[in-house]
Design a protein around this nucleic acid. Structure first.
Length: 222
DNA sequence: AACTTATTCAACCGCATAATG
DNA sequence: ACATTATGCGGTTGAATAAGT
């Protein structure tokens, strides 16, 4: 996989992103902003198509993207919103700060609405993740995914040291994640005090978000 | 230890819609 | 009004790895 050759011409790269590509993409966007993805890919010198760049940025490299296990509160929100909207992953993701549609979709498929793949279908019935005690596979997944997600964190480590990026505006964060949520202004204002000056959000911010879910009934959200 | 099966999740694909000329 | 291009979304796949035998 990865690069495919086509009549000797180097094809547009596919497959997993390398550290170098991540760095190129991040530093390019930090200087020129996101959008115009096809053009961005060309201008940045990335041998990728625009869609691939967009996906990589939105799901993994963008500041504020939250990694790690889905919390019980998030699980609850996902279930509630899915019951209301169905597979509207991006819409659901807007109500889960830092989570992406892709991540929620994967979570739903693998943890909530488990549909066995592969040969043996006679596996255990849909185990309900409501138990929330993360199953053994959950714990395993953290280490399983480490190889790839670790690449991203390494990128950030290097990037943080090498660049002096302006801090992303909280407003844009709120716009990205809370747009349709009731009380967005209050959330943004209250969360602002936790936002550190460096790139990214600190624990206080996420604690705030977690607490927010406890106090904000799902039914209050648009 | 070697092999098989199950699981996870990053990334791709195709389609729909929006934006632009 | 139409054609073309860009963007966004949801479904699906496949490599990597864990778990089981």
């Amino acid at each position: 996989m990865g690069t495919r050759m086509c009549g000797g011409e180097p094809a547009v790269r596919k497959g997993p992103w390398t550290l170098e590509e991540d760095l190129i993409l991040v530093s390019y966007i930090s200087q020129n902003g996101e959008g115009s993805w096809d053009n961005l890919a060309r201008s940045a010198g990335l041998n990728r198509n625009g869609k691939s760049c967009r996906l990589r940025w939105l799901n993994y490299l963008r500041p504020g993207v939250r990694r790690g296990s889905i919390t019980p509160e998030e699980d609850m929100v996902i279930r509630e919103l899915h019951s209301r909207w169905g597979n509207r992953w991006s819409k659901i993701a807007k109500h889960l700060p830092g989570r992406t549609d892709n991540e929620i979709k994967n979570y739903w498929r693998t943890k909530i609405h488990r549909k066995p793949r592969g040969r043996s279908q006679l596996q255990e019935p849909c185990e309900d993740a409501m138990g929330m005690g993360m199953s053994t596979s959950e714990a395993a997944s953290t280490s399983a995914s480490s190889s790839q997600s670790q690449a991203s964190s390494t990128v950030w480590d290097e990037y943080m040291q090498a660049s002096s990026l302006p801090h992303p505006e909280l407003a844009s964060f709120a716009a990205d994640h809370h747009l349709e949520m009731a009380g967005v202004d209050e959330v943004a204002a209250a969360a602002a005090q936790f936002v550190p000056t460096e790139f990214g959000f600190n624990d206080g911010f996420w604690n705030f978000v977690d607490n927010f879910w406890e106090t904000m009934p799902v039914s209050d959200m648009v």
